[in-house]
Design a protein around this nucleic acid. Structure first.
Ligand SMILES: [Mn+2]
Ligand SMILES: [Mn+2]
Length: 629
DNA sequence: GGGGTTC
DNA sequence: GAACCCCAACGCCAC
DNA sequence: GTGGCG
């Protein structure tokens, strides 16, 4: 048999791929391994002798279109093999983009073939073997391939699916795929493969639009319709107003003009002050969104493109299967319990807090668990807090809260503090319940002043915040902290160190609250400048990024009045909810990392901890050296 | 998350 | 009642 | 005075 015939026979035999079932959460996290979900074309890379073919799910031949990938499949270390994976076009950030893949004819972008399975190897059908064996063989045959090539093994990992999902979403990926340990490969949609998406996405019938301006023919937003069941009628599903460029807005208006009708075709469309233009459903829009609202509409929609292969009639609501797990399933919000933690009622306890991957209830219980250790570091201090805002690219991210204004649970105390230009009302947490109250407010980071509310003008500590540039290795950060300690010691000051949950370290010097802010800032500024003078290759004291590469910023401005630093045992607003942790100096080694502990692992550390890593910190009675004052 | 406004 | 929209910091320092 | 930065 020639290689071409062999190839045909192999495709015939194993050409049907396995697909994943959409779920909201993975039911038995430990029974699965996790991979990132790549957004591209599902492609089998088939090789038989000298013949190579790239085959899509519908058996279309993509060998020519993806010639660079085909070339690399030819170099795989096997006579016959079938690779299963996803061919993607990467954008500038290295994130796969479906839109880019579709428009590739216009702008050349490089293709990457993320492979995750091996279905056939040298005459043997591997699909009956457990996934672990298939992966091992996959690595063996692909690892020999030129490392600069387009084939990349999609890595699999174990752990908390919500944390992995949070990481994937943070990177701008579509979601994750869970594969059951020990499972065989079986064509079609099977429960051994699950997918969890960051954002939902499906097709909607276009049932009208809102003009951008009364005067111009451009689409401001599309009105969308969807069916609840294949045989049911279309109903209103919301409107989508973002995701179009200017050209598309005009083009859509032109396409919709001939379809216009006087009255809405769908019953429950809002009136929109009668500016809405209704159309006979003909076009189908692909729309991404976060979730379905109680009222059957979509939240945070964004237009992805028109679907020419679908009709309005085929637009049926796709709901993910609920997970079987009671701990992570999303029950109807109305019926959801409101558990109490230390007397604080927690709303939406199972809501996952972006970008940590941790639920609100987990966060509340975390502060309950570490409260006894955390409170001495926080009690009495004015706070700055960080929440996470969803929404448009520009306004997504950490939101800093300083002033109490109307909000804030009653368990928190309020104090008025003079600022440079006005009077601000700050929150103070004096009890563990108050920390839980912050969790109820979705607070992901708790930052404290270096003075107490009852003596705001006299700091009771100074903080040396060591911020390494991205290219500084950890061992240099460790060296820097130890140097800070030594030099403080030479000035007669004892210091203590903590991780930050990020990349750097904090070195703290407790003080008798006598010196004022000017003196504390002056001392730390002089100290930082001395470090820079003595070793300008390692340290900077200036904030602008371009002067920092390869160096560590000795950020003395943490000690400016009204400035704060992240509190001991506060979580950070990052994937996996890392935590700032006080450590003993002899724990500060090359093996540690600043994000070594997270919301889960730090609780174990505290439970096992036999002696206080910060022994003596709260009893220290130190003053800044006379020369500095 | 909270508050105000709109439907 | 719910859906939608908007809001939620400050101050230093380099330029 | 503005903007980048923590
Ligand atoms: Mn820092
Ligand atoms: Mn800093």
């Amino acid at each position: 048999m020639g290689s071409k015939d062999r190839l045909d026979a192999i495709v015939e035999r194993v050409g049907d791929v396995q697909t994943a079932t959409l779920v909201k959460a993975v039911p038995e996290p430990h029974a699965f391994t996790y991979e990132l979900k790549w957004d591209g074309y599902r492609i089998l890379g088939v090789k038989a002798g000298a013949a190579v073919r790239l085959v899509s799910r519908k058996r279309q031949d993509y060998t020519k279109e993806m010639a660079s990938v085909a070339r690399d499949v030819a170099t795989v270390d096997a006579d016959e093999c079938v690779l299963d994976g996803e061919v993607c076009a990467l954008d500038e950030r290295g994130v796969p983009s479906f839109q880019l893949l579709q428009n590739r004819t216009r702008r050349r972008s490089s293709l990457v073939y993320f492979v995750f399975d091996l279905l056939w190897l040298d005459g043997e059908d591997l699909r009956g073997r457990p996934i672990e064996e298939r992966r091992k063989l996959l690595e063996q045959v692909v690892l020999g391939v030129n490392r600069k090539g387009s084939i990349v093994i999609s890595s699999a990992s174990e752990g908390d699916p919500r944390a992995i999902l949070a990481l994937a979403c943070e990177r701008g990926l579509e979601g994750i795929v869970a594969k059951r340990k020990g499972s065989t490969y079986s064509a079609g949609k099977k429960p051994t493969w699950l997918k969890v998406k960051c954002r939902a996405r499906q097709e909607f019938a276009v049932i009208g639009y809102l003009p951008l301006m009364e005067t111009r023919d451009a689409v401001g937003g599309l009105l969308l319709g969807v069916k609840d069941s294949p045989s049911g009628p279309l109903h209103y599903a919301g409107k989508v107003g973002t995701g179009f460029d200017e050209k598309t807005r005009v083009a859509l208006a032109k396409m919709l003009e001939p379809d216009r009708v006087a009255q809405p075709v769908v019953k429950d469309v809002p009136r929109f002050d009668d500016i809405a233009r209704h159309v006979k459903p003909r076009l189908v829009a692909e729309v991404e969104f976060t979730e379905w609202t109680e009222g059957g509409h979509i939240r945070h929609p964004s237009f992805q493109g028109l679907r020419e292969d679908k009709t309005p009639d085929e637009c049926v609501k796709e709901a993910p299967r609920e997970s079987a797990s009671p701990s992570t399933s999303t029950r109807a919000k109305k019926n959801e319990d409101r558990p109490e933690v230390l007397g604080v009622s927690i709303s939406n306890p199972s809501r996952v807090l972006t970008p940590t991957g941790v639920t609100k209830l987990e966060l509340a219980r975390y502060y309950e668990a570490v409260g006894e250790h955390m409170l001495p570091h926080v009690k009495g201090r004015p706070l700055t807090l960080v929440r996470w805002a969803e929404g448009k690219e520009t306004e997504k991210g950490g939101v800093y809260l300083r002033h109490a204004k109307a909000w804030g649970p009653d368990v928190l105390r309020r104090v008025k503090i003079r600022e440079k230009t006005k009077l601000g009302e700050y929150l103070v947490a004096d009890t563990v319940a108050a920390l839980v109250g912050l969790a109820q407010m979705d607070i992901l980071e708790i930052h404290t002043w270096s003075s107490r509310a009852d003596d705001v003008e006299h700091p009771d500590r100074v903080v040396f915040d060591l911020d390494p540039a991205p290219d500084v290795p950890w061992k240099e950060v460790v060296r820097a902290a130890k140097l800070v300690r030594e030099r403080l010691e030479a000035l007669g000051l004892e210091s203590w160190v903590k991780t930050t949950g990020g990349k750097g370290l904090h070195v703290l010097v407790p003080l008798v609250p006598e010196a004022d802010w000017d003196e504390c800032l002056g001392f730390t500024r002089a100290f930082a400048q001395m470090m820079v003078r003595d070793d300008p290759k390692r340290f900077v004291a200036a904030v602008p990024k371009h002067v920092r590469s390869g160096r560590i910023l000795v950020d003395y401005l943490r000690n400016n009045r009204t400035n704060t630093s992240v509190a001991a045992y506060s979580t950070r607003a990052r994937p996996k909810a890392p935590v700032s942790v006080p450590i003993a100096w002899d724990e500060l080694t090359a093996d540690l990392r600043s994000d070594a502990w997270n919301i889960h692992t730090v609780v174990d550390r505290l439970r096992r901890q036999r002696k206080d890593p910060w022994a003596g910190y709260f009893r220290a009675r130190q003053r800044l050296p006379r020369a500095a004052r």
